[in-house]
């Protein structure tokens, strides 16, 4: 098999195995109801993780995601409470702000040659701070349009529901996969992960690509914020703390190399499913503390990083010699 599919395959195998184990113990986990909930509950995380996948593939990192989600939520809540603006218009405004925010971070990273870690860390504090400026309190969103949106779903056989936000996540993953593997921009993202200097000599527009990557991540964080506000019907500046780390976890468990250049958006989807599955299992069990989720995910992450090291090592030493 082409070695580049190894991490993805391993992720899928692990997912299928653990799913089978869960089903063996709680056959209900197989029901469309559980699956539908799993998608809905993880929708905001999944959408943000797609953006994170692009960033990590390019060799960067975006720590601002959680804060942008919180900011978007507060922004929507404040706008909807204090003005007569229609939610759809407010959504567009929020997406625009988040996209610009990402683009500016990308521009700083490229033009000032600053590490993405530092720039997006600053972005994280900035976005969180702006959320606080808008409001310190948790504001409920009672706009009737929210009720309409939440009422939209596609009924699966067996009583499960693909809600609007769950479906949106699937759509985002689909588009993400298309962008990553079927557009020149997607290949350019991988090219940056393979080495910026080389990519530049090969004619990749490094600056434009970098800006677009962080803009895309911002856009998806904004979208994730909208989904989160639909999910919770509230905006709160302390919400979604640490979501960026969950997103990174999903990306890495999904088989993407943290150093960039190798991985799949589809892998991130499996990564999200694995995290969701662990949570669901723990809910089903009832006796386990929710901290077990963190412990299991921590262990998985560790195993995956080891596995990636192993694969890199094996594929290096198997390189055909001249």
């Amino acid at each position: 098999m082409n070695p580049k599919y190894l991490p993805l395959t391993a992720t899928i195998v692990i997912f299928v195995l653990s799913y089978a184990l869960c089903v063996a113990q709680y056959p209900n986990i197989l029901s469309t109801r559980v699956i539908g909930n799993l998608l809905t509950d993880n929708a905001f995380l999944g959408i943000a993780a797609v953006g994170m996948t692009f960033v990590i593939l390019s060799g960067g990192i975006d720590l601002s995601i959680g804060s942008v989600i919180a900011f978007t939520g507060v922004f929507l809540a404040v706008v909807l409470e204090n003005t007569g603006i229609h939610p759809l218009v407010a959504f567009a405004m929020a997406l625009l702000i988040a996209t610009l925010f990402g683009a500016v971070m990308g521009a700083i990273i490229h033009y000032l040659e600053m590490p993405a870690f530092i720039v997006t860390l600053a972005g994280m504090f900035l976005a969180r701070g702006m959320a606080f400026v808008l409001s310190i309190d948790s504001i409920a969103i009672k706009h009737p349009f929210y009720g309409t949106l939440k009422g939209l779903y596609y009924k699966l056989p067996g009583g499960g529901r693909i809600t609007l936000i769950g479906g949106l996540m699937l759509l985002v993953f689909g588009i993400g996969i298309l962008i990553a593997h079927r557009t020149r921009f997607g290949t350019d993202v991988y090219a940056l992960g393979g080495g910026t200097a080389t990519a530049k000599l090969m004619g990749v527009p490094v600056g434009r690509t970098t800006i677009m990557i962080y803009a895309l991540s911002g856009l998806l964080a904004g979208l994730s914020g909208i989904v989160f506000s639909l999910y919770t019907s509230a905006g709160y500046s302390l919400a979604a703390v640490g979501v960026e780390l969950d997103a990174i976890t999903a990306v890495v468990i999904g088989g993407t190399l943290l150093t960039g250049g190798s991985g799949f958006v589809a892998g991130t989807f499996i990564g999200i499913l694995i995290q969701g599955l662990i949570q669901t299992y723990i809910t089903f069990d009832g006796s386990l503390s929710s901290w077990w989720t963190k412990i299991l995910i921590g262990l998985l992450l560790f195993v995956f990083i080891l596995m990636q090291k192993g694969i890199v090592y094996v594929s290096r030493s198997e390189r055909r010699h001249a």
Binding site: R184, G193, G194, G195, T198, A199, M202, V204, S262
Partner: peptide, 21 residues
């Protein structure tokens, strides 16, 4: 270029056609 051996992580085809796929 002297120092470049293309991008190791891209496929052979992607390396050949990068930027003009």
């Amino acid at each position: 270029y002297q120092e470049v051996n293309l991008l190791p992580n891209l496929t052979v085809a992607e390396n050949l056609f990068l930027g003009r796929q």
